[in-house]
Design a protein around this nucleic acid. Structure first.
Lengths: 224, 224
DNA sequence: ACCTGAACACCGTTCAAGT
DNA sequence: ACCTGAACACCGTTCAAGT
């Protein structure tokens, strides 16, 4: 067997694109998009930043690759025979969870909506929606509305979680926002002051699913 | 009257915060967020970039200010007595148009959802939704779902318009995306291939309003 | 109070040169 | 084929110094 020793700090395997993408996901998860830098990546992989750019042309390409990998890892296909509403809710929750653990993911999906990961999501939603009986000519609108809700609300949730910092004083944060709303809306018979209270103690996941249900209920009207 | 002449290139009035924000909106509209630079701004306002930062602490603050100004300028209050569904659709269209002419606006609203401009939007939507008879305990979910749809879809539309460049070969772009979908979905009895066609010739504004209507229809179920 | 411009610590991207 | 590291043209932010 080969017993050649290598100088410390020299990687034993050649750099692979997959390796780079995995490391990028790690940095994105830990410290967000601003922290993803070719230099930071090179440091972590013990190489030069020029080497990375041999495998990955530029930062945009790196982000697309990371997005595709992260989403398709968490998107499961519901078992055949699952009732359509259940299937939609299951896929929605998968995406919600994926974006929750990769807070940068939603923003990326939004920025490049034609990427393969997104096509997969559309397919997963379109199948049960068609099964619900939504007529073919309304299918595009229906799926588009659902996908926008799923990615949008999940994103917003993840961004909020990030905004309140790693210390995670959720209640303090929501209190501050609610208070601000109440102050801005004060005076003129505003309705928003009453909503501030509901903001204080809503559950993000329930709220998200309730929104999915509203859209599904709306679709029932157009379904046969 | 004063006839003092000034050396060319010297601004006659002191720099104001409002002036800076207006110039920032101009740059954002013309060339996007990446082009908004303290240096570019300074060049246009004929001053040094240090001067700007006396008025505006940092770039984040500048973006928040530009967002608030741009949105509140286009958000009209529907006349009293407007039927609730009409009012919701009118506000939605206002936002759609605002984001269409300020493509960076949606991203910013998403990033800082507690900002005053957003509170105003919530108020404008909450009022007619309450009037529709949605019970108080469901109001937060209802408004949240509508606002997410409005900002999200309008944003997506603006981003797509930007992606296909100033030359604006809309059909070519949609064709390319549709073709890609068809290719990715080929083979396994996929449903998405059929949607590709609808993507090719949908109208963005109609699509957007159809989504609003689906949500409104869903809300009718919970309304008394 | 308001503005200037140098300085600092970063970026992404390119590219000649090595192995 | 794959990697290195210098170089380039930028950033945002800070800050001593001016008026």
């Amino acid at each position: 067997m080969s017993t050649t020793t290598r100088p410390a700090g020299i990687r034993s395997a050649a750099l692979s694109r997959e390796q780079i993408v995995d490391a990028a996901i790690g940095i994105l998860d830990a410290n967000g998009e601003r922290a993803l830098t070719f230099r930071a990546l090179a440091l972590q992989l013990q190489t030069g930043h020029g080497a990375l750019q041999w495998h990955v042309r530029n930062k945009a390409e790196l982000l697309v690759a990371a997005t595709a990998t992260a989403l398709s890892r968490s998107l499961r296909t519901p078992a055949g025979g699952t009732p359509p509403r259940t299937a939609v809710r299951a896929v929605a929750l998968d995406v919600f969870t994926a974006i929750e653990s990769h807070p940068w993911l939603g923003t990326q999906l939004f920025a490049t909506p034609w990427q393969p990961a997104m096509v997969q999501l559309w397919e997963q939603i379109a199948r049960p929606v068609a099964e619900m009986g939504v007529p073919a000519e309304s299918l595009f609108t229906a799926v588009s509305t659902l996908v926008n809700h799923i990615v949008g609300v999940a994103s917003q949730n993840a961004l909020n979680a990030q905004l309140l910092g790693a210390d995670g004083d959720r209640e303090g944060f929501l209190d501050a926002v609610a208070e601000r709303w109440e102050r801005l809306a004060a005076g003129e018979g505003s309705i928003i002051g009453r909503l501030a209270g509901q903001m204080r103690d809503h559950d993000d996941r329930e709220e998200f699913l309730a929104g999915v249900d509203i859209i599904l209920a709306g679709l029932d009207r157009t379904a046969r």
